[in-house]
Design a protein around this nucleic acid. Structure first.
Lengths: 81, 81
DNA sequence: GACAATTTGTCCGTATGTATT
DNA sequence: CAATACATACGGACAAATTGT
């Protein structure tokens, strides 16, 4: 795992998700990988070890309206405002 | 502690803080009680038992710009936009 | 400068609840 | 009913910034 410059993990994850949305990789309505899968990925790429940290990032993006969560279903990219 | 209607603790805390700001009890620039003190208070009033839960609420209000946090100093009501 | 105390900030791991399929 | 996935809460650990001694 890379040595970390100090941007908190949750902020790095938010940046990554925002970048994917902005690039069109994850268009509006796209379903994100599950929290567990995201943890695997950000574990490899950033060194994150806990689902709580992934949740921290997603939670903030839900608050800001960039993502929409549906319990039991998944998390989706919000439609354009 | 009262039986809880289901609004999450963190949301109840956010509502309470917003109400105090709106009422003028906590005007812009006012320093909030420390996390530990807030935990005591919301422990009594709501049954909250963990500082993490208080943090959850404050964290969201920091994100939204309603509060401003300064490490080592305290958390303050943001100036009017 | 060094050190302790206080307070916010991040992260972890676990447990349990709730909604959908 | 079982499996999956998000949502909330807890409690502990440690880092970072500020203040005071």
């Amino acid at each position: 795992v890379p040595e970390r410059e100090f941007t908190p993990y949750y902020a790095q994850i938010m940046n990554d998700i925002r970048a994917r949305i902005a690039s069109g990789e994850w268009p509006p309505g796209h379903q994100l990988p599950s929290t567990a899968t995201l943890l695997d990925q950000y574990g490899e790429r950033l060194g994150v070890r806990s689902a709580s940290t992934v949740r921290e990032a997603i939670s903030r993006l839900l608050d800001s309206g960039e993502l929409r969560g549906h319990q039991g279903l998944g998390v989706f990219v919000a439609p354009q405002p």
